[in-house]
Design a protein around this nucleic acid. Structure first.
Lengths: 228, 228
DNA sequence: GACAACATACCAACCAGTCGGTATGTAGAT
DNA sequence: ATCTACATACCGACTGGTTGGTATGTTGTC
């Protein structure tokens, strides 16, 4: 689903030690090597890119040895695929947790989601950018397995937006050729593009500006016809 | 300026042999090694990413030896910076050449530019995506020289759009807080984001959909207040 | 004690960058 | 015009460190 900001804890509710730092202070507890490796991959690839991140670096950040790495993953590519799938899971809370998901109006829920994404655009760039978006840039032509895994993650994100958008299209009248999936993909495109701009300046401000335009567009799209 | 499609010939009007292919068929003529290396870097980095592209690969694609490479560039990073600057130059014709630049109405020129970018979204993905956008993803945190060079290229593109947008803001009335530079950056964000989506599917169609939304947004922004 | 979950030691391939040398111009003196 | 002196452009073998991956040993758990 391509989230950009992780919950403070892992999917299972247990904090993964040292992930995000360059090197794990402690050795990962037995049974958590796999999760620690995936979390380390998320953080390092977002910062350095996929090809520039070495297996050794990931192991060091995860507090695990190379033997553990290749016990759990057949190759660096296999880790990338698993990490893309895990990324989808890491995004799920984004669609269930926030308060705006309780609103009655589908448009209000959609705008609430955009606001939620806007609020994420803060702090160090590598902490709000998208793991799969970063990885697919490098791997789309060289590893179809990675490409497909990233596609699945992005698709899952878009499809999670579809119900609210479809409902908004029903309630308000949008232009004929606006489809729920198409608009969801456009939202994703603006987010991904805003991440790239933020990387060029190493500052989130330019990304917020773009998401503001996105929000205005959605408001205009679904404006009641007689509105001022 | 971050173009996405090169003119068929180099900046000096002479075709660079074999660039775009994996390996140059012929050796580059004396005096053209530098240009050939930059062109090879553009094509290989767009396909594979920066870190995954080796100096040897670039040399092979350019039809020159490693000796020539390090004669012209102090390091791989120095080539990256030079290639980012060259990318800006490669984009310039995009703002001068096309017929729509002759139109009287600034909004028509702007829409014409969007149409022009839309028309580029065709063929193999690595042939319309952005070199600096790809590179900055990987290098923003590890090489400030590369990051800054990519920022300069993106900024140049945005600033080339500013005059027409500013004129359109003057002629038509847009919302208060829309600035010319901000909208130019949003246009760039949508393009960059659409490239990422195209990479996930390995198909330009999803990118065209997003640019269509962008075009609609711009039309709505500058719609005459009394229009239907 | 058997099996999964690790750790350690190691390797062949690869990579950015070096270095001594050659080929091709070119400016100035004669 | 031709020779000398020098500069630029380019070549390709070599190197030291790195990389993804393997082979084998150890530890904890049921």
């Amino acid at each position: 689903m391509s989230p950009n900001h992780p919950p403070a804890s892992g999917a299972d509710g247990q904090a993964v030690s040292g992930v995000g730092a360059a090197i794990a202070a402690t050795r990962a507890p037995r049974g958590q090597a796999r999760a620690a490796l995936i979390a380390a991959a998320h953080s390092m690839v977002r910062k350095q890119g996929y090809a520039a991140t070495t297996v050794d670096q990931i192991c060091a950040a995860a507090g695990v040895t190379k033997g553990a790495f290749f016990h759990h993953f057949a190759s660096k590519e296999a880790l990338a695929v698993a990490a893309a799938e895990a990324w989808t899971e890491r995004a799920r809370p984004m669609f269930e947790m926030p308060p705006h998901t309780q609103l009655d109006d589908p448009l209000a829920r959609l705008i609430g989601h955009i606001d939620f994404r806007f609020a994420m655009l803060d702090g160090p760039v590598e902490e709000f950018t998208c793991f799969v978006g970063t990885m697919v840039q490098e791997a789309f032509a060289t590893s179809d397995a990675i490409r497909a895994a990233c596609e699945a993650s992005i698709t899952a994100y878009c499809e999670a937006l579809v119900p609210d958008i479809a409902a908004a299209i029903d309630v308000y009248d949008a232009p004929e050729d606006v489809t729920a999936l198409g608009l969801a993909q456009h939202i994703q495109a603006v987010l991904q593009g805003s991440f790239i701009l933020a990387k060029t300046t190493n500052d989130p401000a330019i990304a917020r500006e773009s998401v503001t335009h996105l929000k205005r567009y959605i408001r205009m799209l679904f404006a009641p016809p007689g509105a001022p």
